[in-house]
């Protein structure tokens, strides 16, 4: 049962991710990216990581994608008439895309596929467990990343004040 669920979810994830890239209408790209985030959250739930799944939804589907949608709506890109790109840009895009593909191939080639086992502890994804780990073992990285976020917030406020 879980295996078929996984197959269906993976197919949906890949399909929505492909629509993001191939859709001519930026609105549809944004919406299928939201669908993609939802299916990834479902994958997290299947891996017993409820907290991660729900936070993923709040942060990506709930906050970041709303801003994306906001911008796309304001830019009025719905006419599907893209600006004509010069050949230089096209060549550069092909080269950079190819390089990225090369990096991906190289990294996938050296990865060893190991048989995946689900965590036996059903409560492994609970908030309590995540909190225990985060505030004991990883306290310093956690605090440093919060300082990083704070500086990003202050930076955006300063930039918008100019």
């Amino acid at each position: 049962m879980n295996f078929y669920l996984f197959l269906i979810l993976s197919a949906l994830t890949l399909l929505s991710a492909l629509v993001v890239v191939f859709s001519r209408n930026p609105m549809y790209s944004v919406l299928s990216l939201i669908v993609c985030f939802f299916t990834i959250a479902a994958h997290y739930i299947m891996l017993k990581a409820q907290f991660l799944a729900i936070v993923h939804l709040i942060v990506y589907a709930g906050a970041i994608m709303v801003l994306f949608l906001f911008v796309v709506m304001l830019l009025n890109l719905n006419k599907q008439n893209e600006v004509h790109k010069t050949n230089m840009v096209k060549v550069a895009a092909v080269i950079t895309g190819g390089l990225l593909f090369l990096v991906l191939i190289a990294s996938v080639r050296t990865t060893e596929l190991s048989a995946f086992t689900l965590p036996t502890n059903n409560e492994i994804g609970y908030v309590q467990q995540v909190g225990q780990k985060l505030f004991n073992e990883f306290l310093l990285p956690f605090e440093i990343s919060s300082v990083l976020f704070l500086s990003a917030m202050i930076g955006s406020v300063v930039l918008s004040k100019k």
Partner: peptide, 28 residues
């Protein structure tokens, strides 16, 4: 009875605006 019940509530609230946004935009 979700272990992350309140966060679920918050996630649904935060995606609640999409219906209005999509409907308003699609009306042209």
């Amino acid at each position: 009875d979700l272990n992350v019940g309140i966060l679920y509530l918050f996630a649904v609230v935060s995606i609640g605006g999409y219906g209005i946004m999509i409907g308003g935009w699609a009306s042209n």
